[in-house]
């Protein structure tokens, strides 16, 4: 991705991320978060991670935030709108952000990787294709395209099968809990 687009989407993300906190209207905050997510998805896509970028929009912007907005509208939350900001929390938050920025800067200033661009380290498709065992991914790599969705799936299911099962169990427990909590007593 050309650098101007990177700066555009980063700025978009940061500005709307800040607006989530600054806006007093909960609906405006929620929508700012959606725009921020879309900017983040664009950054993922700029790194050739189309799958993660699309899932970012599909799950967070398209499903989670819709439910948030839904709840805000149904409950008609207005308490936040008139309240004055808590000065202690604002100062503390800014101080934490500054400390984090200083730390990030000190790490990044020593790191030499920032001088390299993607063009300096091209992906060696043919070598990757030779060690690849699955036929569909192999064919894609031989055509010099990055099958990112397939690679994500392969990595998840070959390298982390136990963790996947564990997450599945956790989600099941959550689902059962929700059903139990929202179920009305009949008698």
């Amino acid at each position: 991705m050309p650098a101007p687009l990177f700066y555009f989407f980063s700025l978009l993300m940061l500005i709307f991320g800040a607006l989530v906190v600054i806006c007093r209207n909960p609906v405006a905050s929620a929508l700012s978060l959606v725009v921020s997510f879309v900017g983040l998805a664009a950054l993922f896509i700029s790194l050739d991670a189309y799958f993660i970028g699309t899932i970012q929009i599909l799950v967070y912007a398209g499903a989670v935030m819709v439910l948030f907005l839904f709840i805000i509208m149904l409950l008609d939350i207005r308490a936040e709108a008139g309240r004055k900001p808590n000065m202690l929390a604002v100062v503390g938050g800014i101080a934490l952000a500054v400390i984090f920025l200083v730390q990030l800067g000190s790490v990044l200033s020593k790191n030499e990787m920032g001088n390299k661009t993607v063009a300096d380290v091209p992906i060696n498709y043919q070598t990757a294709a030779q060690v690849q065992k699955l036929d569909t991914i192999k064919a894609d790599l031989q055509n010099s395209t990055l099958p990112d969705a397939k690679l994500v799936g392969q990595t998840l299911f070959n390298r982390y099968p136990f963790q996947i099962q564990l997450i599945g169990c956790l989600l099941l427990v959550g689902t059962v809990g929700v059903v139990l909590l929202s179920k009305r007593e009949v008698n």
């Binding site: 959606v34 879309v38 189309y50 799958f51 699309t54 899932i55 929009i57 599909l58 912007a61 398209g62 499903a63 819709v66 969705a149």
Partner: peptide, 11 residues
Amino acid sequence: LFTFAIASLGV
């Protein structure tokens, strides 16, 4: 997936 993702923003 792209189609579903963008279409879900229409909500």
